[in-house]
């Protein structure tokens, strides 16, 4: 319990130390931040850096980040790479298959705004045109450390979430994905 008590904010221990009181928000958010399971989903070059983040040197798992191959078990989607127009619809479908609360990290220049393909006819210029994004991570490709930083930023965001405001970090997420314009 020691680790749990250290990590929970707004904690109050009754005299004697046998009962601890905390808000449900802090308890739920603690659980959510500590095991962010991303979807094993790589689009392009950034996916190789994402793989490197899971592998020996960077060891993403120590942050509780453990890849899941199916969207039904995933909390967060790393959009790692260029979103081509043909891929836009599958991405929306995958996003809708993820259970709430769900988060999206746009990894790399392409997922942020089109990146080096800003003038291409077949590229969606930023994944935020089709699904809501929580953290934008620049770079082409971002280093694995940068991806870890993005996850830390997402954890900070999750810690501010309140259950009464719906399940997601942003109001947009409560209403689901945006329509393709």
């Amino acid at each position: 319990m020691g680790i749990v008590l250290d990590n929970l904010s707004k904690i109050e221990t009754l005299p004697g130390g046998e009962i601890a009181l905390a808000t449900s928000d802090s308890l739920i958010n603690w659980a959510r931040t500590s095991s962010l399971w991303p979807l094993t989903f790589g689009l392009a070059c950034c996916a190789i850096e994402m793989m490197a983040a899971y592998a020996a040197r960077f060891d993403f798992e120590r942050m509780g980040v453990f890849p899941r191959p199916t969207p039904r078990q995933a909390d967060v989607m790393f959009v790692a790479g260029t979103v081509a127009k043909k891929m836009a619809e599958p991405i929306i479908r995958i996003y809708k298959q993820m259970p709430e609360p769900k988060f999206v990290i746009a990894m790399g220049g392409c997922a942020n705004c089109g990146g080096p393909f800003y003038d291409s006819y077949s590229v969606v210029k930023g994944v935020d045109k089709i699904i809501p994004v929580d953290v934008y991570l620049p770079g082409c490709p971002p280093r694995p450390e940068a991806l870890m930083y993005a996850v830390i930023k997402l954890q900070e965001k999750i810690r501010k979430m309140k259950v009464k405001n719906g399940s997601g970090a942003t109001p947009l997420q409560a209403t689901g994905s945006r329509k393709l314009s």
Partner: peptide, 25 residues
């Protein structure tokens, strides 16, 4: 085609030094 980025067309819109960056990808 799920990752079609129009690379060959983009080469035509870059000069020879700039186009090198696309080849990496």
């Amino acid at each position: 085609g799920y990752l079609h980025r129009g690379m060959e067309k983009l080469f035509e819109a870059r000069n020879y030094s700039q186009a090198l960056v696309l080849t990496d990808r």
